[in-house]
C-alpha cells in the first residue's frame, strides 16, 4: 500500500474543514478526489504533505507512519504535491525551475561551491541532462529559457508536474491540474500522467473537470463539507444520487 490516510481531521474552531477522512491508495494507483468548492480537498492535500498540522489522524506512506514529519521531509520521502494556484519560481526560467528541483545537489552547499567547484560542475552537467529529458517529455522546449512567470496557466501546470518529476517523486499529488488549461492540453496532460503511472508513479488528483478525470482515474473519492460522502469506481460514483445531490446538482458535464 503506497498511501494510507487514516481518520484525518482538521478543525478551525468549531468548523471541521476536514472531518475524519480516510483514503487508501495501492501502488501505481491513480486516484481522484472531487467535491464542491470548500469541501476541504486542498486542505486535505496540505495535511497529507505536511503543509498543515491536523488535529487528529495519521498518514502512512510506503509503510512508514509520517507522524509530525515536515513538508520538506515528506517531499524527500517521495510524497510531492503541486499547488492549486501554480507556484513557479517566476523570475527563473523553466530550465532553472527544473534544475532547482534536482535532489541532493552538492553545489547547494556554499563550501562545496567554493572548494569543490569541479565536482559541482560535473553534477550540474548530469542534472542538466535529466532536465532536458523532462523538458522534452513535457514538450516545454519552446519555452525552456523563458522566465516561468510569463508562461500560460497550462504551461505552469506542466512545469509544476515537471518539477515534481525532477525530485524523483513516487507519489505526486496534483491540485486541479486541468483548471484553466485548454482542452487539447488536458488530453496531453492526461496522456503524460498515464505514461508516468506506467513507469510506477502514483497520482492523487483533485479536479473539477469530471469528464477528463473520470477517464483517467481508477477510483474516485467525493468530499463534501469536510467529509467523504462516496467512493469507488468513477462511473458508479458519478451516478450515486448522494454525489449528484451534493455536487453535480443533476447534470454531468
Amino acid at each position: 500500500m503506497t498511501l494510507e490516510i487514516k481518520n484525518m481531521t482538521k478543525a478551525y474552531g468549531g468548523l471541521r474543514v476536514v472531518d475524519d477522512v480516510s483514503i487508501t491508495m495501492e501502488d501505481n494507483d491513480i486516484i481522484g478526489v472531487i467535491g464542491p468548492n470548500g469541501a476541504g480537498k486542498s486542505t486535505l492535500f496540505s495535511l497529507v504533505t505536511g503543509f498543515l498540522d491536523g488535529n487528529s489522524g495519521s498518514v502512512t506512506f510506503q509503510g512508514k507512519e509520517l507522524g509530525a514529519a515536515s513538508a520538506t521531509v515528506r517531499a524527500q520521502a517521495g510524497l510531492v504535491r503541486t499547488f492549486q494556484v501554480p507556484r513557479e519560481f517566476s523570475h527563473m526560467t523553466v530550465r532553472e525551475n527544473l534544475m532547482a528541483a534536482v535532489p541532493d545537489q552538492l553545489g547547494e552547499n556554499l563550501l562545496n561551491t567554493f572548494f569543490r567547484p569541479g565536482q559541482v560542475a560535473r553534477q550540474e552537467v548530469e542534472s542538466a541532462a535529466k532536465v532536458e529529458e523532462t523538458i522534452a517529455f513535457l514538450k516545454l522546449s519552446a519555452v525552456a529559457d523563458v522566465p516561468s512567470g510569463s508562461l500560460s496557466g497550462g504551461q505552469k501546470k506542466l512545469l509544476e508536474l515537471g518539477r515534481a518529476l525532477m525530485t524523483g517523486a513516487k507519489l505526486i499529488m496534483l491540485d486541479e491540474p486541468f483548471a484553466g488549461v485548454n482542452p487539447v492540453l488536458i488530453g496531453e496532460l492526461s496522456e503524460k500522467i498515464r505514461e508516468l503511472n506506467a513507469r510506477g508513479i502514483g497520482f492523487l488528483i483533485i479536479e473539477h473537470d469530471l469528464g477528463a478525470l473520470s477517464k483517467l482515474v481508477h477510483k474516485m473519492y467525493v468530499m463534501d463539507r469536510g467529509r467523504l460522502i462516496s467512493s469507488g469506481d468513477p462511473a458508479a460514483v458519478l451516478s450515486d444520487p448522494v454525489v449528484r445531490e451534493a455536487y453535480i446538482g443533476g447534470g454531468v458535464t
Binding site: 504533505t49 503543509f51 515536515s70 513538508a71 520538506t72 521531509v73 517531499a75 524527500q76 510531492v80 504535491r81 503541486t82 499547488f83 507556484r87 513557479e88 519560481f89 517566476s90 523570475h91 527563473m92 532547482a100 528541483a101 535532489p103 547547494e108 518539477r163 515534481a164 525532477m166 525530485t167
Partner: peptide
Amino acid sequence: DNEEAVRSLGKE
C-alpha cells in the same frame, strides 16, 4: 520567489 514551493520539492 516562493518559499513554500521550495519546501514542496524537499528542500529546507
